[in-house]
Design a protein around this nucleic acid. Structure first.
Lengths: 233, 233
DNA sequence: CGTTAATTTGACGGGAATCAAGGGGAGTGG
DNA sequence: CCACTCCCCTTGATTCCCGTCAAATTAACG
């Protein structure tokens, strides 16, 4: 089939609907050429690997995806979490620069890169979109460098909760798909530190947990002041 | 004149040659439309500020530039150093997301963004270049997140020296334009820690310093293994 | 309902930050 | 040409935030 030059795969990815999924490719919608294939990935299953040929571009339909880099001894830095509606795996070069894995069972829409490139070569608006998508990732990465390089553990967790809260438009409560370890590897901390800080935030009433993964923000301003999101930005 | 909605400016930026500098705009060269203006900036002078309107794009001719973000209490994260030949200030959105300052007295070539955009709208190859430039910045940012989130102080300094060594093709020795504080703010450390680690590297013969800013790599493999640049990447 | 993974919490230690002097080099002015 | 000054850099002493190690509790899943 395709997509599986991947390495360690626990379950086999399988096409959900090989047929036409009427173009809901973000701002690429209404482009009949851009027809995606839905693929389903199990928890912790690899979607693509670092340095692997970038044959497809991706959009999360349901579930969640993490993209990350590894050091030789296993230390991991997660660059971004991708939630439903998010695009990922867009490369200007031939190869992926991070690995991508499903955090939970996920459905992903994918589209051949060559098709997209061909379209971009004809349609300047598509080319502009590609640029904008990469620029948005860069924006996030630059903000995250500030967090990783200069914020304290408490500030990082507060920033993370605010980011997730802003991205989870549903239900008023944050419903985290990822483990404490994932959060830690995103924030440059250990899972114990993340857990401790969330506990503190809960103890002081800044957030409320119905479960470890269900967090409700009670005092947004407290989080904002903690996360240093108020002054500049 | 222009370019100076900037805030704290020690010396005044001044045009070096208001006239035509025959288009040497990187891969934008041989584009007669892209004629740059050379501007000179003094040490620590602001080139543009965060959240400022992105009216120009820039190329370093001589000197060096840092781009950075600040937190409210003054903590700073430098996102990148820009050396002669490097492009910076390319935005897909209307506003800059970092500030830019000259590290040393510098000459910078700048070009109106609107001109570039107009050109990109007509010429798909230019549009592709814009995308590629942003993608290269993203690549660097992703590698830097790994450094900031997961590498030790010694690994960060080793990685930094290797990066600079690779970018300074001249003379075999690294000639740093920036202070220890700049390096620290790039690596998410303090200037004292950077200084200590460089001293250690010198003591063990991994590098040799003719002055604090003049560093020669003596044992590249030692730096590579320290910087965790060998295994994956 | 048993097994395993995820989370929380505690005790402790260490790596880097902070606090504090002390040198050195480049530019300036006498 | 030399002395003075201002940064920049180095080095030491101490602190402390967060990582490490360990164990108990809870949640998830077959």
């Amino acid at each position: 089939m395709f997509i599986q030059s991947a390495a360690i795969v626990r379950q086999q990815a399988r096409p959900v609907s090989a047929a036409v999924t009427s173009g809901q490719f973000c701002l690429f919608a209404s482009r009949p050429e851009l027809i995606g294939t839905k693929m389903s990935y199990g928890r912790d299953e690899e979607i693509y690997g670092e340095a692997e040929e970038a044959e497809f571009v991706y959009k999360v339909v349901s579930g969640a995806v993490r993209t990350y880099k590894l050091l030789g001894d296993g230390r991991r830095q997660i660059g971004a979490f991708h939630l439903p509606g998010d695009l990922f795996g867009f490369e200007s070069n031939a190869k992926h620069r991070l690995s991508a894995e499903a955090i939970a069972d996920s459905v992903v829409l994918l589209c051949k890169r060559s098709t997209l490139e061909r379209l971009a070569a004809r349609d300047i608006e598509v080319a502009r979109q590609l640029w904008a998508i990469t620029a948005r990732s860069l924006d996030h990465a630059e903000e995250h460098m500030l967090l990783l390089g200069r914020k304290t553990a408490a500030e990082r967790v507060a920033s993370f909760l605010l980011e997730m809260d802003a991205r989870m438009q549903v239900s008023g409560a944050i419903n985290l798909p990822m483990t404490r370890r994932d959060i830690a590897d995103y924030l440059g901390l250990t899972l114990e530190t993340v857990s401790r800080i969330v506990s503190q935030l809960q103890a002081e009433g800044t957030v409320a947990l119905s479960s470890a993964r269900q967090i409700r923000v009670q005092k947004r301003s407290k989080l904002q002041e903690l996360g240093s999101e108020l002054p500049l930005h």
